[in-house]
Design a protein around this nucleic acid. Structure first.
Lengths: 221, 221
DNA sequence: TCACTAATGTACGAACCAGTACGTTAGCTA
DNA sequence: TAGCTAACGTACTGGTTCGTACATTAGTGA
């Protein structure tokens, strides 16, 4: 997250709406990701900020709206990263593998985001439903997948009947699960899915899986 | 869940420790799955039971231990279902597909369990870590996977270097994600992963994916 | 049938926590 | 430089919520 850090001489009351707002969002992101929506404490967020609880209500209106704002910014970061995707110069197989790997990397690098999404799912995605910003936000990654799929299917490399949203779900599920279920999986099977030494292994496994699926001759559907 | 339902004539105070305990567990499972750990209300659980809050503390000690007990029972149900797995009479390819489909079905049929696991992950799997019962509980499904893999690799049908735990993670991730991320995925991509009309499609997709991965010639590792 | 204990109910307390009433000040602009 | 307002701080409240002290009764074994 874009952390805002300035020395701030003590005793002096500096006014900076943008900085205060951003700092609240930073801390709130951590707190919500740490403890879940109901577990998060507004007082705790305020305490870890250079401002007071009053400001949270001044800028965001309430805990619920604060969580929505946190989600909006977190999704914004993801979407922005997805727009950097540039795999059009690669052949379809290499392009899909690259896309899968970037998704893999991104999930690994943003565990807080994964936790926020898990939390939002526990609450039935009600904050997304109530946010205009999140409703309108498309998914650049989907467009990329669509282009690669079309190209791969046209050249006969890929099986014809694969849908972009489905493929996105397949790639996401593997990347998401690895981060979201790290703790229970580790506790039950004694294996840390985020172990650094296993990183390359799982990254290749994802790519192999997706390519195998896309290039295999399909049984009757 | 094994629901306990008996008429219970009003005004009469019937003593049945086992029934009271089981009823608390049933309701607590629903409440925790509905609202998360911190969102769940002990008073609400008590209210929806034929007994009182006092009994929750009498039998379980506290909210934390109650959640652990809920988790223990939920995992117990899963493990028991896994022990019914009987695919040894099938050839490796059919056996793996059958196993994947059973996992798929089971996740679909137990959304509360999925939610509980998501919640437990938000809290770092601390309840699993603190439970002797859950630590000792193995995974029959893993043994089945091991047997099928060995057989498939021996006959040369499957690629040699696939690990049972990894394959379990792959199958689980797809099945788990479909249920756990249903709401955010639906809100963002306008597609309900649990749509009845799409069920067969996703079920086949999972099987195809796993088989394709296991039978594809692997790139240099 | 009597006494004992496991099981149950009632009523309450103390801490916590989201949200707000009210007062203050920095910094801009006319 | 006077005055205005956006930005900020303090102190409090009202309701909620986990947990418990204390009282009671059903069923069982001697």
């Amino acid at each position: 997250m874009t952390s805002v850090e300035e020395p701030a001489r003590p005793g002096e009351r500096i006014r900076d709406a943008a900085r205060t707002r951003a700092e609240i969002l930073d801390v709130a992101t951590q707190e919500f990701a740490r403890a879940g929506y109901d577990g998060a404490r507004v007082d705790e967020i305020a305490a870890r900020t250079r401002t007071t609880k009053r400001m949270i209500y001044y800028y965001f209106g309430g805990k619920e709206q604060l969580f929505t704002a946190v989600l909006e910014r977190a999704y914004g970061v993801i979407r922005q990263a997805e727009q950097q995707l540039d795999v059009d110069h690669l052949d379809p197989v290499a392009a899909i593998r690259r896309l899968a790997e970037l998704t893999f990397d991104h999930h690994e690098q943003h565990p807080d985001f994964i936790r926020l999404v898990s939390i939002e799912n526990i609450h039935g995605a009600q904050h997304i439903a109530g946010s205009e910003k999140l409703g309108k936000m498309g998914s650049p990654a989907l467009d990329v997948i669509r282009r690669i799929l079309a190209s791969g299917q046209e050249s006969g490399l890929f099986t014809a009947d694969v849908d972009a949203v489905d493929l996105h779900a397949m790639i996401s599920s593997f990347c998401f699960f690895r981060v979201s279920n790290r703790h229970t999986f580790g506790a039950l099977f004694g294996r840390d899915l985020l172990d650094r030494g296993q990183r390359a292994h799982y990254r290749a496994m994802l790519g192999d899986m997706v390519i195998a699926y896309l290039t295999a001759e399909r049984t009757a559907d």
